Each structure stands twice: as C-alpha cells, then as structure tokens.
Amino acid sequence: MSAPQRRRRPQAEDEDSDEDARPRQRQNRDNSDDEAEYESGEDMDVDGNSGQHADNQLAKKLIRYAISCEYSRTAIRRDGIKERVLGNQGRSFKRIFTIAQKQLRDVWGMELRELPIREKMSLQEKRQAMKSNSQLKTGSGAYILSSTLPEPYRSASVLKPSKTPSADDEATYVAFYTMVVSLIWLNAGELSDQKLKRYLMRLNADQNVSNEKTEVTLKKMERHGYVVRKVERPPIGQDGEQTIRWHVGPRAKEEVGLDGVMGMVREVYGEWSPDLEKKLRSNLGLKARAAAGAVEDGDGAGESSRMGAGDEED
C-alpha cells in the first residue's frame, strides 16, 4: 500500500465515524424531545390538580399552626389563621378549614371547636349591650383543638400529662384549674375573690400551687381562658371598695364542661347516691334541663359531654 493510500484511509475512517455519530446524536435528540414532551405532559397533569394540591398544603399548614397554638394553650383565632397560614388566600378560609377538619378527624383524632362568645357579666356591660345597636356576633372567631377519640381512649391511663415543663407540674395544673372551675360553676357561675381564697385556704393552696405562687397560677389560668377575673369599681363620686368576681372562661366551658365538673365532684365524694346526684344537678342548674331531656329521650340525660351551661351544639 502506497503512502498516499495510507494517508487517505484515516480520513475515510473519520468520515465513517462522523456518519455513525450523526444518527446517534439525532437519536439522543429525539429521545430528549420525547422526555421533554413526557415531562411537559406531567406538568400539565400537575397544573390540572394544582388547586387541590395547594389547598392540601394550606390545610396541613393550618393543622401545624393549630397544634402549635394548642400546645401553649393559645386560642386559635380566625385572624391569626388568615395572617399566618392563608396570606393572600384569605377568602378561601372556609374551604381550607373544611379540608383541615377532615384531616384532623381522620388522622389526628381531633377537631377544631369554636369557643363560645364571652358573656356580658356585669350589670353595666348588659346595659351597654342593650343600648348599643350593634349586630350580635354569631361566633367568637376563636377555636381550640378537641379530641374526637372514643370515650374508652380518653381515660387517664391512656392520655398521659404533657412532659413540658414536667408531667407532675402539668397534672397539678390540670387538677387545679378543674377544681377552681368546678367551684365557680357550683356557685351559680360566679365566685367572689374572698370566697375563692377561703376555698384555697382549706385546700392549703392559697399561697403556692406546685412550684409557683397561687397568684401566678391564677393569672396563667386567666390568660389561657379557663377563668375570667372581673373587677367592679364603685361609680364615680361614690364611696366604696372595688369587688373582684371570678367567672368560668370560654376554654373551660369547652374543655372541662359540666360533665367534667360533675365527674370531679363524684370522684371527690367517692360514695355516690341518687340524692347527691339530685343535689348536684340542682346546684348546676340542670334540674329543668334534665326534666326536658326526660320528656324527649325518656332517660333524663340531655346534656352534651363537651358543652357548658347555656351553650348550644352546632
């Protein structure tokens, strides 16, 4: 083979390799085009369900916000949900709230319950409410998380106290606010400060509750919505001392309820009798309601397990 032929063969081989490479490049480009079309088809499907996906994400965000608020016993307010969760989607509150409620019930065994509207307690407040022509509110706009688990799973052996700050402190706090709420409810829903102090003195809880001062615990209960402290001052120009009265707070009406009060009284007394049951129901103002329930149901049990006096079930 002559030298010119040897020199021409590599060139021919290069041309052949270039021809082989061109179909492979076209094949790769064709495959990439197919993948791009496939991905764009997926994007179209995602875009078709983007609204539902966005709603689910907002519902999960609402659930996280609700759990964080409930952990610190902070009321979950509608304005807070719109600001912290929905942002510029504030008009979709009802739709997102419904999705979150379903997820809470199906996965978490809880639901958001709206707190009752704060009642007008003093005579002055009632008079102002009668004089004002403002439209009555249909809801408080504040919620708490409530368990939807069956009754057997709500016992103390199943539901343990929170370990923050400690299990003992949490159990003591729950027992204390349940007792104070029960005392207020048993005194026709209103308890003077002097009478509350006498009760606490008998229980040796007038100075300290667990590791903190009793005054600090009462202020914490007021902040969490278990009690309402009402200060009534004498009219201007008249002599007299201010009076302090304690009322049942909105969280206590939903979380403790009349059933919680009755359960605590029965537990404290131990031996129970029909006569004590009659006195307890009369003291809580349930005599007329029990009679009405007996007419409707035939068994005299007309109270809801999660409702306070004067509350109506949705």
Rank of each mutant, 00 (worst) to 15 (best):
I96L: 03
I96W: 03
F97S: 08
F97T: 00
T98V: 12
I99D: 07
I99W: 03
A100S: 13
K102W: 05
K102G: 08
K102N: 12
K102F: 09
Q103S: 11
Q103M: 14
L104R: 06
L104Y: 08
R105H: 06
R105Y: 02
D106T: 08
V107M: 11
V107A: 09
V107Q: 14
V107T: 13
W108D: 13
W108F: 14
G109A: 08
G109E: 06
M110K: 10
M110Y: 14
M110E: 10
M110G: 02
E111N: 00
E111Q: 13
E111A: 10
E111H: 05
L112E: 04
L112A: 10
L112R: 05
R113K: 12
L115I: 06
P116V: 09
I117L: 15
R118A: 14
E119K: 15
E119P: 07
E119A: 15
K120S: 14
K120H: 14
K120L: 13
S122G: 09
S122D: 07
S122C: 07
L123T: 14
Q124A: 15
Q124T: 15
K126I: 11
K126D: 04
R127Y: 11
R127F: 08
Q128E: 15
Q128I: 10
Q128V: 06
A129E: 13
M130G: 04
M130D: 13
M130T: 11
M130F: 09
K131E: 08
K131P: 00
S132K: 05
S132R: 03
S132Y: 01
N133V: 00
S134M: 02
S134R: 03
Q135K: 04
L136Q: 02
L136S: 05
L136W: 00
K137C: 01
K137S: 05
K137M: 02
G139H: 09
S140K: 03
S140P: 03
S140F: 07
G141V: 06
A142H: 08
Y143I: 01
I144V: 13
L145M: 08
L145I: 03
S146L: 07
S147C: 12
L149C: 03
P150L: 00
P150M: 01
E151P: 08
E151Q: 13
P152I: 10
Y153M: 12
R154K: 15
S155C: 07
A156Y: 00
A156I: 12
S157V: 14
V158Q: 09
V158R: 11
V158F: 13
V158L: 10
L159S: 12
K160L: 09
K160Q: 14
K160V: 03
K160H: 07
P161V: 04
S162R: 08
S162C: 09
S162A: 08
P165K: 01
S166V: 04
A167Q: 15
D168N: 13
D168W: 08
D168S: 15
D169E: 15
D169F: 10
D169Q: 11
D169Y: 06
E170G: 02
A171N: 00
A171F: 01
